[in-house]
Computed example of a mutant assay.
Amino acid sequence: MERNNESSGGDFILLGFSDRPKLEIVLFFVNMIFYFLSVAGNSTIIFLSLVDPRLHTPMYFFLSNLSLLDLCYTTSSIPQMLVNLWGPYKTITYVGCVIQLFAFLSVGGIECILLSVMAYDRFAAVCKPLQYMTIMHPQLCLQLAAFAWLSGIANSVLMSPLTMSLGRCGHRRINHFVCEMPAIIRISCVDTSRVEGLAFFLAIPIVLVPLTMILVSYGYIASAVLRMQSAAGRQKAFNTCSSHMVVVSLFYSSIIYMYMQPGNIASQDQGKFLTLFYCLVTPTLNPFIYTLRNKDVKCAMRKVLGKDRSLLDAGGH
């Protein structure tokens, strides 16, 4: 009974790099800048996708979903992290910890599946351009996005309570910035093999199957590109897919490293920096990766900034 009570409430202490106060000051300002850029960049992508009729396509629909996920990633953790980095108190409430854990697990799962859906969209655009709009019709896009969201949330609904219910025997000092699953498992005083085994098992449909689908999609894309006679056509196909390939590489490399291996293998400090990378740096980079080579987004941005009022007039009708 005592163990259950200890697992059911009370504040946690997020140690982070509390033993290195100078590093915490540096991280505070770096994280604050990246958080501002992440919120601004992803909000801009969502806004432009809503107001510019030319961006009402499957690609930008899924990109808006990705931007929304990135906003959820950063907002669920970074404000609390900034408070803890700046002040002497490193605590987070039990409810706050549960919310962070639920957000991390659900958003991570959703993004894995959504990236595979975006790969299929790129496959249809490159390999079946004439049938593209027939294949990626609005109803299918909504169904694929809903499937991604529901799958990620279902994974979190299952794993979050199991993780938080592990006996901790009074241990509330989490050696991390955030309440993510590996960090919470480490402070448990009971056998966690079943929870870790279930997490690894669920990672197969949530992480590995979508990754396999992405690799298969890009295999077909590569084959189609190699058959193209026109250099301009190959360049267009590369421009179509390069941004997504970069985002997939950044996201999956960090997720697989964090969650597809036993928790005692990786250095805990490495885990902390890797968490910062995939919950802050990657969401900040994504809008820039997708817009730097994208003429449609650049054009929409110029119109919103007032160089062409026709976009706003079109959005009002």
Rank of each mutant, 00 (worst) to 15 (best):
E2L: 09
E2S: 09
E2G: 05
N4A: 13
N5W: 04
E6W: 05
L27C: 11
N31E: 08
I33N: 09
F36C: 11
F36Y: 10
V39A: 11
G41Q: 10
G41T: 11
S43D: 01
R54D: 12
F62V: 01
L63E: 13
L71Y: 03
M81G: 07
V83P: 00
L85Q: 08
W86K: 13
G87N: 12
T91P: 00
T93S: 15
T93E: 05
T93H: 00
G96E: 04
I99Y: 00
I99Q: 04
F102M: 10
A103I: 05
A103M: 15
F104D: 03
F104Y: 03
L105T: 10
L105A: 02
S106V: 01
V107A: 09
V117T: 15
V117P: 02
A124L: 06
A124Q: 10
M133P: 02
M136V: 14
M136T: 07
L142T: 07
F147S: 13
L150Y: 07
L150I: 15
L150K: 13
G152Y: 00
I153R: 00
A154P: 01
N155C: 11
L166E: 09
G167W: 06
H171Y: 09
R172K: 15
H176I: 01
F177V: 08
M181R: 09
P182Y: 02
I184G: 01
I184H: 04
I185T: 10
S188R: 05
C189Q: 10
E196A: 10
L198T: 14
A199Y: 09
I204A: 14
P205V: 13
P205G: 07
V207R: 14
L208Q: 07
L215I: 15
V216G: 05
S217T: 11
Y218I: 07
V246E: 01
L250T: 10
S254D: 08
I256K: 07
Y257G: 08
Y259K: 14
G263Y: 09
G263E: 07
S267M: 10
Q270P: 00
T284C: 14
L285A: 12
N286R: 03
L292I: 15
V297C: 07
K298T: 14
M301Q: 07
G306A: 06
A314W: 02
H317T: 15
